[in-house]
Every structure is written in C-alpha cells, then in structure tokens.
C-alpha cells in the first residue's frame, strides 16, 4: 500500500508540473485578458477537484452509516479537508483573476456567492466534528452532515440555471463588442485545459486524500494506544 501511494504521489507531482507547463509555457497569452487568464487553468480544475473530494465525503458518509467501519469516516474527513483546500484555491484564484478583469476582488454574483457558501458549509462540517466528544457519535453526525452538505456543491454547479443573471464568464472570455465580428479564440486553450482538468479533478485530490487517510489511521492508532494505556 505504501509503495503504491509513493508511486501515485510521484505520478501526481510530475502531472501537476506538466499541467503547470501547459498553463504557463505551452498555452498562448490570452490577448484580451493578458497573462492573468492563465490562472484559469488552475481555477476551474480546482473546483472539479473539490467536487471529487466532496463526492468522496458523501461516499465515505454513506458507507460509514452502512458498515460502521472507521475507514469510511476517514475517507469522509479526508474529502472535506482536501475539498475545502481546493475550494478555497478556487475562490482565491477567482478573486485574483477578477481584480484586473472586473476591476474588483469580489462581486455578489450568484455563482461566487454559492461557491463561498459551499466552502463555509464544509467549515461548518469541521466545527460540527470538533463539537462532539463521543467518537462514534462524531462519526455518525459527520457522515450525516457530509451527505447533506453536498447539496451546496450541487447548487454551485446548477446556480446558473436557477439564477441566470450571473456574470461568471463562459469558458472563453468575452469578445470586443461593436467590432464587425468576433476575435478568434486564443489557440491551445482546450489543449492546456483538458489535461489540467483531468489532473486536478482526479490525481491531486485522490493523492492528497490518501495521505490524509493515512494521517487519520495514525491518529486512530495512537488513540487506541492511549486507551490501552489508560485501561491498563
């Protein structure tokens, strides 16, 4: 197990570096937005990474309720921490992109708001976890809340349908108005985006979650030792 994790970690690091090369070396500068557009190659993939991680939380939650095996709860908590990091990364890169392009760090756009609420929901998950001393009850409640919380992730994905007045842009930026046609899309966007999307939505969250699960296992192990010591 340890060996395959090390191999996976190696693959992930190489893939991320390759993805960064695609974003910062291979892809051409977006002529309308300037170099800041390159942040998009991380911004969007990190959201899908968060989605993967939070899906892991749901699977962990459901399986824990079903089997009561601690390993599923470890998966759930790993998904929350990794997903929360990726969601914050998504929010931060979005804000940094918006500053030069929209001339503001933040607007109360429906999608931005729901993405922020999504991150807060998982912060609430961590608070709830910390608020319960009884380990079994903590795992139970965390599993339940992890399942319920996925609704905010789905809301963020669907918000454009519910509240259509979002200014969140489509994949390729706006074209200069009034001209007699549109500007050709920056070449190589898709070629640079797709590998990054794949890397950040699978390899990155899975590797990080795996390490986080190992940490949780260690924690369980130490807890068990402590109990033994107290009982002896």
């Amino acid at each position: 197990m340890t060996k395959s994790l090390h191999i996976l970690t190696g693959i992930t690091i190489i893939s991320v570096l390759f993805g960064l090369y695609l974003a910062f070396g291979y892809a051409r500068t977006d002529l309308e937005q300037g170099d800041i557009q390159r942040i998009f190659y991380i911004h969007m993939p990190s959201f899908f990474g968060a989605f993967t991680a939070f899906t892991g939380t749901v699977i962990g939650g459901v399986m824990y309720l079903r089997t009561r095996h601690v390993k599923w709860d470890s998966l759930a908590v790993a998904g929350v921490e990794v997903g929360l990091m990726l969601a914050l990364l998504n929010l931060a890169t979005g804000a940094i992109w918006a500053r030069p392009i929209w001339n503001t760090w933040w607007t109360w756009d429906p999608r931005l708001t729901s993405a922020a609420v999504m991150a807060l929901t998982y912060l609430a998950y961590l608070m709830l976890r910390n608020g319960i001393e009884n380990a079994d009850k903590r795992r139970l409640f965390a599993s339940v809340y992890g399942i319920v919380a996925i609704t905010t992730v789905i809301l963020t994905l669907m918000i454009i349908r519910i509240v259509p007045d979002t200014i969140h842009p489509a994949v390729i930026g706006p074209s200069p108005q009034n001209a007699e046609g549109v500007f050709e899309a920056t070449p190589r966007v898709a070629a640079a985006l797709l590998p990054n999307l794949l890397i950040w939505s699978t390899l990155v969250p899975i590797t990080l979650m795996w390490w986080r699960i190992r940490l949780e296992n260690k924690s369980e192990h130490v807890q068990k030792l402590r109990m033994e010591l107290i009982n002896s």
Binding site: T29, D30, L31, D35, I36, T93, I96, R99, P100, A179
Partner: peptide, 19 residues
C-alpha cells in the same frame, strides 16, 4: 476592434503564490 492586451503579470504571480 482595437484593443490592448493588458499587462497583469503581477496578479498572475500573486495567484500562483496564493495557490
């Protein structure tokens, strides 16, 4: 149709650092 590609490398750098 004329437009100038904005120079915003510093924001890109900030984004990379934060990420």
């Amino acid at each position: 149709g004329f437009f100038v590609t904005p120079d915003n490398d510093e924001y890109l750098l900030l984004g990379i650092v934060v990420a």
